[in-house]
Every structure is written in structure tokens, then in C-alpha cells.
Amino acid sequence: MTVGSGPPDADLVADVRRRLADEGGPVTVERVAAALRATGRVLGRTALAELEASVHAEIRGAGPLQPLLDDPDVTDVLVNGPRDVWVEHAGRLVRTDVDLGDAGRVRDLAVRLATAGGQRLDDARPAVDARLPDGTRLHAVLPPVADGCTLLSLRVVRHRPFALADLVRSGTVAPGVDELLRGLVRGRANLLVSGATGTGKTTLLSTLLSLADPGERIVCVEEAGELAPQHPHVVRLLARRANVEGAGAVELADLVREALRMRPDRVVLGECRGAEVREVLSALNTGHDGGCTTVHANAVADVPARLTALGALAGLSRDAVAAQAASAFHAVLHLRRDGGRRRVAEVGVVDRLDGAGGLHVRTGLVVAADGRVGAGPGWPALARRAGLTGDRAPTGPG
């Protein structure tokens, strides 16, 4: 994969940055172009346009990595060294020929991106997890914690909306399973979307929320504005990390409580991975139907253990988590990634063992890699919740 020819001259970037600082005000593409022309560089129109974009990326964006982040088929950019840059392109890791210069420039880029995300990255704090202004997730580690060179991991947030029919055509949702999903949303079921990192949990959740009644008010609580439902009444509450002084943090748990005071028809937590599980379980047990959240898990059967672990972070006992989760969530939608393709692999029903024991998820549907669908013991309960008539489960293609 060929992208760019390396970063622009460091002295030129420093000159442009100094001119912008002297003028003050927001750094825009137009101001970068004007400052670049003011340096007296004599270039042709095409070369000047390319240099303007490169300098702007060096000052405001991710430098030579910016074209990679702008590629709609790229989901992750991984930097292992100055000339060891990889991307996940269309579901596969591909090495690029991007040249970041030397280890010093990689470190400078990481520090600048961390600062843009409101975080500190230096020898005293050699690892950072941040969100860039455009929503891109940044993780960076400096040497000597990182062996040899600063390591960068950038995950791109795409706001491209998908209709449920699009997910069926792409193979993410098997034929017939889409009707079950429509019924669950129409029936205001509380949904838990599970899966590993990068399996498409946010994409699926955005698509399902787009099916909600246009007259409903959806309140989304997120770390960054990743959910993109095509719905006329969506409001967002975004968490805020502490600044470099360690002050000003606004946690997800606080925002879930705020959301309940905003007359929501559906409360949605973009990702549940900490003590905020207590607030989510409380909300979905107090009459707030139609709520949704996502959680990291390996399979439907592993969801109870994951919820129990999160509940422990919030001071909830195993029995308390089981009692609340069994009545809070009506269905678990599990996504898996096979060979770069993301798909709904299982749909389960949450309940308690023998009505009183630990938490359990009964399998309702299992979807094979070829799209064939098999019913499990939880199918009748799923069908009733989705308002589907008859006991016949979807079978997929064939």
C-alpha cells in the first residue's frame, strides 16, 4: 500500500507554526495555506496544494498518517517504527511504505496527538489512551516501556450509517434474523450487544436504533460520539477525561444518571466496561424499556461472567448482578469476526438458573459462517419478545 512520501521539512513546519502562533486564532486550512505562501516557497499549483495538505496534517492532524486515517476502508493505523507502519484495510492488516522520518519524529507525533486529546505523554507518564477531536482513538507508549520506538495505535471512528438491509447484503446479519431484530426493537426490548474489539458492535447498535419509532427520544451516553443512528431525535452526553492536572473528569456513570432526568424513551450506553454497569442495570430495571448497551465478551455464554466482573467494580455481589441483569436485558446479540467479515453469530436470552441461581444466557439462535441459522432452547422466548408468530425459527440461505 503506497501513501505519501514522508513528512514535510521540519524547518518549514516550524516557520508556519510560528506565523500561526503570532497571528493567534483557530488554525484552519485557509490560514495554514496563507502562512505557507507567506514563507516565500515557489511551487507549482499542484505541488503547493499537496504541500498545504501535508503541512496542515503535520500541524493539526496526524502528519503523514493523516491520508491513512482519511481512507474510508481503513479502520486501524498501527505504528511500530518510523518505517514500520501498518493499517487494517478492508479487514486485513497491510504494511504501508509510509516513512515517518526517525524515532524522534514518531515520538513528537505521539506527544502532539496526546496533547490534542487533552492528555499528557512524557517520561513520567509513558503510556496514554486518548480521544482525538475527530473521535479517533489514540493509544501511545514511549520507550523504554515500548521497546525501541514509540508505539502508536489509532482506531478510526466512522460515522457512515447503515440500514438493516445493508447489513443483510454484507453478510453481517443472516437472512431472516433481520426480522427478529426488527421485532425486538419494535417491541422495545432491552438489548445487550456483545463481541470482541472490532466486531461491529457500534455499527449494529446504530443500525438498530435507526429502526426506533421517530416519535421516541433517544439519549446516548458515550466516551466519544460514535453512534450514528438515522433518527430525528437523538441527543448525546459525552464523557470527559481528566485534564493534565487530573481535574475535570465526567464519568459515564454520572452521565447515565443525568440521562434518566432528560425524559428519555430509550437510554443507550455506547460501551459498558466499568462501574457504570450499576447505573445501566438500575435504569433498565426502573421502567426504561428499549435501552441498549455494548459489552466486550467472547461468546454469549461468557456474558454472565463479564457482567459479574463489571458488577464487582461497582461493588455489586454476584447475586445482585444476576437478579438485576436477568430482568434488565431481554436479548443478547453477539458478534464475531471471521476472516475480516463481521457478523451476528448468536442471539441469546438472559435469565437465572432455576429462577434463583447465577446468571445464564440461553441460546436462541446460532448463525454459522455460511449464514445458516439454527434454533436453540431460548428461541420461543425470543420469538415472543419480538412479536413473531409461530415457533419456526429463521434458517438463513438455502
Rank of each mutant, 00 (worst) to 15 (best):
E23L: 12
A103D: 15
R261M: 03
R120C: 05
D302E: 13
E58R: 13
D99F: 07
V349Q: 07
L51F: 00
V349A: 08
V367I: 12
G287V: 08
H56S: 08
G374P: 11
R60H: 10
G287F: 04
R337D: 15
L255I: 12
R263L: 08
K201W: 10
A331I: 13
L365R: 04
G91N: 04
P67C: 09
D123M: 05
G24Y: 09
G364I: 05
A275L: 04
T96M: 13
T39E: 07
A49E: 15
L205E: 01
S5D: 14
P397M: 01
V42L: 14
T75P: 10
V16L: 03
A275W: 03
R392W: 02
T363G: 10
D108A: 15
G61K: 07
A57L: 14
A62V: 07
D108T: 14
E52A: 04
R266A: 00
R155T: 10
A309I: 00
S206W: 01
T150P: 14
E226S: 05
A163I: 01
A305I: 00
D11V: 12
D351V: 11
R45E: 15
A33R: 07
L284F: 08
G364R: 01
A242K: 06
V373P: 14
M1C: 10
T39Q: 06
E58I: 07
R112E: 13
G339K: 15
E223I: 04
L93A: 08
G176S: 03
S206L: 07
D71I: 05
V256H: 09
L184R: 06
D108E: 15
G376S: 10
L365A: 02
D129M: 06
V13M: 03
T294M: 13
D129K: 05
G390M: 08
E30M: 05
D22L: 07
